[in-house]
Design a protein around this nucleic acid. Structure first.
Lengths: 121, 121
DNA sequence: ATTAGTGTACTATATAACTAATACACTAAT
DNA sequence: ATTAGTGTATTAGTTATATAGTACACTAAT
């Protein structure tokens, strides 16, 4: 079950994004035990150290709790998840607005296209 | 006049973006002579080779014409610029939609925020 | 006490991306 | 022919990323 990665971004970073997405979408619920670093490294076909870095990032973001010897678990403090959700939203939108301004598009012009687009699920 | 760059993206790439923006916004007009690689390298405080890479990219994108010994000029084929404009627009929106889907946001939710945001110029 | 499963730390290596320094080559004007 | 201004090529060094291998440390179950 190897994953496909883009080359414009480090693998560990893409994995963080994927897991964040799974948490925000509820695929990973508070309290859920995550795969061990070794299991997950096999699952996605990367080195253990890469996964370790992913898990470290997630813990620094406050999204996971690591219990040495037991495993890594999705945080049960749902406030943190909601917080992440809001932060993500704002950051995404802010960056997007910066981009469209940098390239000389108007907000209205963009919203128009956005509304016409199919929702990609 | 040194520029400030972010560290999550190569300098050359940021410079390409800036120049693309200037072209799309009309700050750089078709036929305009660009700064020489050496001038521009001083202007933004990076190495000549970095600028060279920027100019190479721009030429590959069809946005500039390079005349060895004379300089680099904004293309006079305005169709290319319009083409770039459309491509940029679609790409920006597409990537954005992918992101918001990956993190589990709905399009409507995002458009709402987008509309409330100030236009950042 | 032992064992299996977990996260963690460390060192080393390979590779690619990025940047830098320097030298080369073309063009136009004098 | 020379010179100043241009783009181009080559080589080298730095950094980030990813990987590999190995060893360590904690926990729970037996």
């Amino acid at each position: 079950m190897t994953q496909h990665f883009t080359r414009d971004k480090p693998i560990y970073s893409q994995l963080v994004d994927i897991i964040c997405g799974d948490i925000l979408k509820g695929n990973l619920q508070p309290g859920d035990k995550m795969l061990s670093v070794r299991e997950y490294s096999l699952e996605v076909g990367v080195n253990v150290n890469t996964v370790q870095r992913v898990y470290k990032e997630l813990e620094m973001m406050g999204l996971t709790d690591t219990k040495r010897g037991q495993g890594t678990f999705i945080t049960t403090e749902e406030g943190r998840i909601q917080h992440l959700r809001e932060d993500m939203k704002v950051e995404l939108v802010t960056q997007f607005i910066q981009s469209i301004a940098a390239f000389g598009f108007s907000k209205e012009e963009i919203i128009q296209i956005l509304q016409r687009k199919e929702e990609s699920k």
